[in-house]
Simulated scan of single mutants.
Amino acid sequence: MRDSYPKPPAHIEPYVRVLGSKLAMQFLLTFGGAELYIGRNPTERSRVVQLVGVDLAAELSETLRQTQNPRIPLAKPWVAACLAHEGRSVADIARTLHASDTTVRGWLGKDPYRPSPARWGDA
């Protein structure tokens, strides 16, 4: 799935491939930082299903079954880059990610997910 958001790092790519960047961001903000079990046949009672729907939850379950780590990553630098891409302010991003504005500026300043200016003709 290709969208205009910053390219995800490798450990986030499976989530973005299944959910797309916007929904992957919401998923990481909701479940990141802890282990998460998604059954092979997720039901409507599942918080994952409530966020992404039955079909995407099942596809995500199958994709994540291939990884060894059941912990959902936080990926705050990438999420910060995506939120900035959406036009959110540094202060708003900091509040959303429970990080300081200084930390967010640091992430955005060395944003490894942002294409180089030469690719966009901004040089």
Rank of each mutant, 00 (worst) to 15 (best):
Leu83Met: 13
Leu83Trp: 00
Ala10Met: 01
Ala57Asp: 05
Tyr5Glu: 05
Leu36His: 03
Arg45Gln: 05
Thr103Glu: 06
Lys76Thr: 02
Val54Asp: 14
Glu62Gln: 15
Arg114Val: 11
Glu59Lys: 10
Ala123Leu: 12
Gly33Val: 15
Trp120Ser: 09
Gln68Arg: 15
Ala84Ser: 14
Pro9Tyr: 02
Thr43Leu: 15
Trp120Glu: 14
Asp101Gln: 11
Leu28Ala: 03
Gly53Tyr: 00
Trp107Glu: 14
Gly106Phe: 07
Thr43Val: 10
Ala58Ile: 11
Gly106Asp: 10
Leu97Glu: 02
Pro115Cys: 03
Trp120Ala: 15
Ala34Met: 14
Asp101Phe: 01
Leu60Cys: 01
Ser21Leu: 03
Glu44Lys: 13
Val48His: 03
Gly32Glu: 06
Val48Ile: 12
Arg47Ser: 10
Pro9Val: 05
Asn69Met: 11
Ala118Gly: 12
Gly33Glu: 08
Gly53Trp: 00
Leu74Lys: 09
Pro8Arg: 08
Ser89Thr: 15
Asp92Thr: 10
Arg2Met: 08
Glu35Arg: 14
Gly109Lys: 02
Arg95Asn: 07
Leu60Arg: 03
Ala57Phe: 14
Asn69Lys: 04
Pro8Trp: 02
Ala75Ile: 02
Pro42Lys: 02
Thr63Gly: 08
Arg105Trp: 03
Arg119Asp: 15
Lys22Ile: 09
Gln68Val: 11
Gly53Asn: 12
Pro117Trp: 01
Leu29Pro: 00
Ala99Leu: 08
Ala123Asp: 15
Arg65Glu: 04
Leu64Trp: 06
Thr30His: 04
Ala80Trp: 08
Leu36Cys: 07
Tyr113Leu: 07
Trp120Asp: 13
Pro14Trp: 04
Gly33Met: 03
Asp101Thr: 13
Val79Phe: 01
Leu108Gln: 07
Gln26Cys: 09
Cys82Phe: 02
Trp78Asp: 07
Ala84Gln: 14
Glu35Ala: 15
Val52Ser: 03
Val48Trp: 03
Lys7His: 04
Leu29Cys: 07
Val49Trp: 03
Leu36Ile: 11
Pro115Gly: 02
